[in-house]
Amino acid sequence: MAAHEMLAATNAVVSLDVGLPGIVWPWLVTVNMWAKSIGTGVIFMLFLLLRTHPESGKNLRFMTAATAFIFINIFLLFTLADLHQPFRMWHIFFHPHWTSAITWGSFMASAFLGLLTLLVFLGYTKKDETFDKVLLWTAILAIPVTLYTAALMAQCTARELWQMPAESAQMILAALLAGSAAMILLGGSKLTYEAKKSLGVVLGLSALMAFIIYMAEYVFGPQKAEEVAATLEYIKGDGAYTVMFWIGQWMTYLLPMLLIVLSRASKSENILKLAAILALVGLFIVKHVWLMIPQLLPMS
């Protein structure tokens, strides 16, 4: 018996169609989002440290600016690599279409890179006063640079999961989480224990908030559009991305939260570093699942 002969009366099967395209935005876009979270997040953290723990922060100006510079370049490089016509990237700057979040993002990211380059120079030449003035504007610009990806994904009207209202919050939380984790690892002996504790609090609270939002929206939230519900089937039961989704949630949010509590109780910096490493690796997995699953759904 052919498959269609066994169907119940209410069911339907596609019996002839073309092969639909698979994943169009691959892991390159995951790297893009992950690197941007680190690149903007460390700037937020340096800004925070210079105000709350200036003794620690003052030693990290150049190193933080250089880290942000490297990761924003990774972000831009992978963005370019994802284009099917990378040598036409200049079209964005000479034929900009201002309704597109991609256009706004390109201009903002370029300006952000310009400020980071200046910060690296100022940090290297130890012009601290000017550095701190430029850092203020860099930190302000880092907010829309982080958020524009949420706006871009919201413009992908075909993929409803990317249009969840809390995605902007998730982008900022990802930057805070990645930034605090990267600073814990970067700081080393230049950070006082108190500064590390503060970064641990930022990491832990970011993880907690992001985890609550994911659970509320994906697992416990009952109100879902048909396509969102169908997309989330890929992370439920024996869905194709269920295992990866939960590995991501544990590595990025649950385990770091537990480890931060442990590190505070035992005053262990190594445990805090382990939490930071897990959060950074896990964030890649979380973002990757979020990027992949809406692309698995047939659109027509």
Partner: peptide
């Protein structure tokens, strides 16, 4: 000739009508 191949349109079209 203008297209940069970012595939944003592929992601945006709710009808799956655009391809690379």
């Amino acid at each position: 000739e203008r297209c940069i191949g970012c595939a944003g349109c592929v992601m945006a079209c709710p009808y799956g009508a655009i391809y690379i």
